[in-house]
């Protein structure tokens, strides 16, 4: 249960004041902290000093415990590979555990292929060269194909080509769920916590977020869509950090039809690097707010015949790009950058 919803009387606070506040409708931590300080004085009829003491006690009970950067360093050097060697190298080993990585591209650019490649790498057993963990594949667009997954896995891990049982075991480690909407997804994730722990899930793939968001909220309800996206991102990250898994989300692109589009909706645009300044006017969907939530953003660009992967936002990687093709075994990089 999130800290905000904890009832006040369960905390180590002045219970008198807590009782008074409850009678005035202020029951949980959220009710107490989301208020102007004067409100608490009025509601609880106490002096300002007492109100401050009370709020301090409440805060002490729910504030996260600090740790040092050094401790964190020891804990989170883990990476999950995407399966594209050059990309993994550039990212410092792969997708960072505990963070949100996003793939953006036009239809047909190869986003699902990349996801399947990452899925294969995560699900393959350690002896075969994978991360030996479970994968949750959230398939909103109904593009998941078990056969394609095995085909790609065989391409990446030589040992799987002969071994039928290992390949099937790999496929079994991938659980596909099909939520109807963003809120449905968030609910299901909360329910999946047990499964996450039981199956040692290391990777959650969402293909695609844009589809889920657009399905639930049309073009008119942008504000609700943005806040639902933000909530979903926060839940995903919380699970990612808590259980040590990586989240890979797929996003689509929209075309910016000049300034008219900008006036129409409040936040379509400013995805820098993905054609923000280009004349083709393509930009990542879902707006700036979602862009802020994402930790790493990888763009798959297709121009004429040339396809390139570009790292557009990353806390550690320089902004490089390199060419790729889609082959029988998924995404392959043609040359080194």
């Amino acid at each position: 249960m999130s800290a905000a919803k904890l009832p006040l009387d369960r905390l180590r606070v002045d219970l008198d004041l807590a009782a008074k506040l409850e009678s005035r409708g202020c029951r949980t931590v959220e009710d107490a902290l989301h208020r102007a300080p004067l409100d608490v004085v009025e509601l609880a009829d106490c002096s300002h000093a007492r109100a401050r003491e009370f709020l301090l006690d409440v805060a002490r009970a729910v504030a996260p415990t600090p740790t040092t950067a050094r401790n964190v360093l020891e804990r989170t050097s883990l990476r999950l590979r995407t399966g594209v060697a050059t990309l993994d190298d550039a990212l410092g080993g792969g997708m960072r555990v505990g963070s949100l990585t996003e793939i953006v591209g036009k239809a047909g650019a190869g986003k699902t292929q990349l996801c399947l490649g990452a899925c294969a790498c995560a699900a393959a057993s350690a002896s075969d060269g994978g991360a030996d963990g479970g994968v949750i594949y959230i398939d909103a667009e109904r593009k998941f194909s078990g056969e394609r997954l095995i085909e790609i896995a065989r391409g990446k891990f030589a040992t799987l080509r002969a071994d039928e049982t290992a390949a099937r075991a790999l496929a079994r480690r991938v659980q596909v769920i099909t939520p109807m909407s963003l809120s449905d997804l968030v609910k299901r994730l909360d329910a999946l916590e047990e499964a996450i722990i039981d199956h040692k899930v290391r990777l959650v793939i969402i293909d695609s977020v844009a589809h889920l968001a657009r399905g639930e909220f049309g073009r008119e309800r942008v504000v609700q869509r943005q806040s639902a996206l933000g909530a979903a991102a926060a839940t995903l990250k919380r699970h990612a950090e808590k259980h040590g898994l990586a989240v890979l989300a797929v996003n689509q692109v929209t075309t910016r039809i000049g300034s008219a589009a900008r006036h129409a909706s409040d936040e379509t645009g400013a995805g820098e690097g993905v054609g923000a300044e280009e004349s083709s006017g393509i930009t990542a969907a879902l707006g700036t707010k979602w862009a802020h939530c994402v930790n790493t953003r990888i763009a798959l660009e297709v121009r004429d015949d040339r396809r390139s992967i570009k790292i557009v936002k990353s806390p550690i990687a320089p902004l490089t790009s390199f060419d790729y093709t889609i082959g029988a075994h998924g995404i392959e990089c043609a040359t080194k950058p």
Binding site: L56, V58, A59, A63, P64, P66, T67, A69
Partner: peptide
């Protein structure tokens, strides 16, 4: 790095709580 103290807040209530207790910390 041992001198960088990290507070990870997943929601706004936690952020507000941290700010209340920061003086003490």
């Amino acid at each position: 790095l041992s001198g960088i103290h990290l507070f990870r807040c997943h929601e706004v209530t936690e952020l507000l709580a941290v700010l209340e207790t920061l003086g003490e910390f």
